[in-house]
Design a protein around this nucleic acid. Structure first.
Lengths: 202, 202
DNA sequence: GTCTATAGAGGGATAGAC
DNA sequence: GTCTATCCCTCTATAGAC
């Protein structure tokens, strides 16, 4: 530890401030989208000026990148990504839905609003979402394929289709849940979709 | 027919102009969302000034209402809504997916972007989407229920869940399709979801 | 029915003081 | 590290000429 007390103190403070800004960014971008969410509103939520915020992130796009990175960090924690993808990996998707509905509705809103906005090719998060869907669908394809190899997949179920549809279902349920949270249980609907696909208990 | 030639002529012209504006509105709101899509861009596309456009729609929200009404008019044509909802009604959803992918990608984009944006309670289209989901999910619940009464639904399938998930799946597939259209066939994935639910051919 | 001009609000980013 | 002040841009909506 060669840092001076002074610089260590200010680094910690800065890292904490960055984190606060990112948290506020998640909320604001979730509410208004990226293009319509303003730096001023984010700054207000952490009690600083818009110019002050831009000391931590040099522009709006950079802040978006930070927000997306933080969001990834959290979501991925509930899906096992080390080792061979299998039925536990698929259960991970259900776990994320369960967790998000209960503890992180802001992340649901953020994903829903930004993924739609970012279908436009010139959107700053377009490539991010392309990569993300490639990754997560690919992960699920591997999981279903391995489940099939273990003889635990019902005949006629295509790993590629099941994977894609599981992710699509998860996304689509989010819209209806955000519109009327009390009328539906996302995790339960996902389980209902998945149960008939396996020869073993899910 | 008591109209003069003159007024008839100008009415027709106005109606045509309104329609052109709505078409352009679909494109622009699809690309940029409602809050971020500008009247100027819409006006430019039909070759008029922004102030000229506001002669036909007195403000931006009114234009949005017109756009949503036009969109409804088109989508509903492919789903039979008169008579008792049944398996044909469910086939209607697949038909819409098929039609939209081929002939109306703009409507897919519009739905995707606006429905996400409108999950915010203060969004001008919030109530519209609440009503729309209530209606379309309800229609599908009725359809599945009647299929069940006819003994054509596989045991254990819940009409309410199947209905909700069918709509969710359709919405979620749209996001992935907009991001990478060549990698997936929305109608085919819907059929793959539906086929195992019925005791008869789908 | 369409235009130009403009009011009035709000956005992102920069300069410079402290 | 944070602020105020400011620049310059874009937006919706209105006023008034043609």
């Amino acid at each position: 530890m060669t840092m001076t007390g002074k610089s260590r103190g200010s680094y910690a403070k800065t890292a904490g401030r960055r984190r606060e800004i990112l948290e506020a960014g998640i909320e604001v971008f979730a509410n208004h989208g990226f293009r319509n969410g303003s730096l001023r509103e984010i700054a207000e939520r952490v009690g600083m000026s818009q110019a002050g915020l831009l000391h931590h992130f040099s522009n709006k796009n950079e802040l978006l990148a930070g927000v997306l990175a933080l969001r990834d960090e959290r979501s991925v924690a509930l899906v096992p990504i080390d080792g061979t993808p299998d039925i536990e990996t698929i259960r991970g998707i259900v776990r994320v839905a369960e967790y998000n509905a209960e503890f992180a509705p802001g992340l649901v809103e953020l994903h829903c609003v930004l993924s739609a906005e970012a279908t436009a090719p010139e959107h700053p998060a377009h490539q991010y979402f392309l990569d993300r869907y490639t990754w997560v669908v690919g992960l699920m394809v591997d999981a279903f394929t391995n489940v099939q190899a273990a003889g635990q997949l019902v005949d006629g179920v295509e790993p590629a289709s099941a994977a894609r549809s599981l992710i699509a279902l998860s996304d689509g349920l989010q819209v209806q849940w955000l519109l009327a949270p009390d009328t539906l249980d996302m995790a339960e609907e996902l389980r209902r979709y998945l149960r008939p696909l396996f020869t073993i208990d899910f």
